[in-house]
Design a binder for these strands. Structure first.
Lengths: 222, 222
DNA sequence: GCTGAAATTTAGATGTGGCTAAACTTCAGA
DNA sequence: TCTGAAGTTTAGCCACATCTAAATTTCAGC
């Protein structure tokens, strides 16, 4: 609803949404700048614009928070992105580690009609190929609590749900070893100081490096 | 190859290509402006930019002509556009008269990988849903000689190949009457002064208004 | 409470692609 | 050949989203 926004504004809304989910409290200009890979000055001026559009509340020098309208913009783009990822992977056979970049540009030009046709064709899926939840048509998203695999101790059981950032190399590495979102695992052993985590998926135990284990989001066995 | 160009530059290249096909000789600034729905001043400055990029040759006050590089840019975009139209119509069931607008924005963000996957999925089609030829991967296009249906006289036979511009209302009107590219017809009668053309498609004779008849491109029976 | 480093914002620039208004070219008709 | 209308280009402006450099604010540590 309301005025259409530019791709840049959509990207900022998406970034702020994602930062709000992780950190608590207001999102800082610096965090946005880092996420968007622009200078802090650029982020600052875009924040001012988003505030002018009513998409964020901005307390100068204090940080930024999405308004309900800003949340809508963010979730709409995220819905586009994740539907597209799912569609590209499923219908066109785009490799798991390539779908993110393709979706990143397509998400901004996807019409509502096409969005709906794609969603219908896929049977209204709830998760993308990375395991991230897809907001529903009315922009409700199922954000389960997940933790980093790295934070678990030996003996824990869980389900690998997604990779928190979209590093193609990590995705490829996991895909090659047959590890995908939804797979259950058990932590067999864990080395201290960022050392590898030994996790058993099915019959096989994999040594997962510190960075990888930090990026892997898991749901604890209830 | 060479530097990537902006969406705007791609659109101008496409427009100039299309204008070159119709009129003979150099393409005028005014024609480009009208086609792009911008002022002549805007077209003029973009022409200067295209010339700087080596995509057109520009004789000031005289007109513009695509260079081989400009032709490549145009054909690449046209390939994207027409593959997308075909894909949207065939795989996603987008209505015939809507595919043009959807493709218009998607064509600029389609990666080469996705283009290839789409082409393969469709079995490397040679024509889009409007009957326009799709340039091959190496940018060869089969531009048959077509004439306007309006230019035919009573008694002529031909095959309807496409609508020269992409007016949704015209496309819808034809679709409703079951007239599609590839259909053969015979001119039964023709009124003078832009009056209707009576064309028989199958068993039915349709009265086609002057504007519509002018937009319908046909191949004459050999 | 002061103070300096870090974070943030402002100032002023750039490049893209539009616009209007004004100047300039071309060319057909008198 | 001259002249005016049509076509084209230039000049100068705007919005967008970025940048660097220079202010400004915040806050932790003394």
């Amino acid at each position: 609803m309301s005025h259409p926004v530019s791709s840049a504004v959509e990207d900022y809304a998406k970034a702020i949404y994602s930062l709000e989910r992780r950190k608590k409290g207001a999102v800082t200009t610096n965090a946005i700048a880092e996420r968007m890979e622009v200078t802090a000055a650029s982020a600052s001026s875009m924040v001012k614009k988003l505030a002018g559009l009513g998409l964020v509340r901005h307390a100068p020098y204090r940080g930024v928070e999405l308004t309900p309208r800003g949340l809508e913009v963010a979730l709409e783009v995220i819905r586009h992105h994740r539907l597209l990822e799912r569609y590209l992977a499923e219908e066109l056979g785009v490799p798991w580690d390539r779908v993110h970049d393709e979706a990143e540009v397509l998400e901004h030009v996807l019409s509502e009609e096409l969005e709906e046709l794609i969603a219908a064709k896929l049977g209204h899926p709830t998760h993308d190929p990375h395991g991230d939840p897809i907001p529903s048509r009315d922009l409700v998203i199922d954000e389960r609590d997940t933790v980093s695999l790295q934070s678990l101790d030996a003996g824990s059981n869980g389900v690998f749900t997604r990779i928190s950032d979209s590093d193609p190399a990590m995705l490829r590495w996991l895909a090659e070893r047959g590890i995908a979102p939804g797979d259950s695992f058990k932590i067999v052993d864990k080395q201290p100081f960022g050392g590898p985590v030994f996790a058993q998926f099915g019959q096989t135990t994999h040594a997962l490096g510190g960075e990888l284990a930090a990026a892997m989001r898991v749901e604890l066995e209830r």
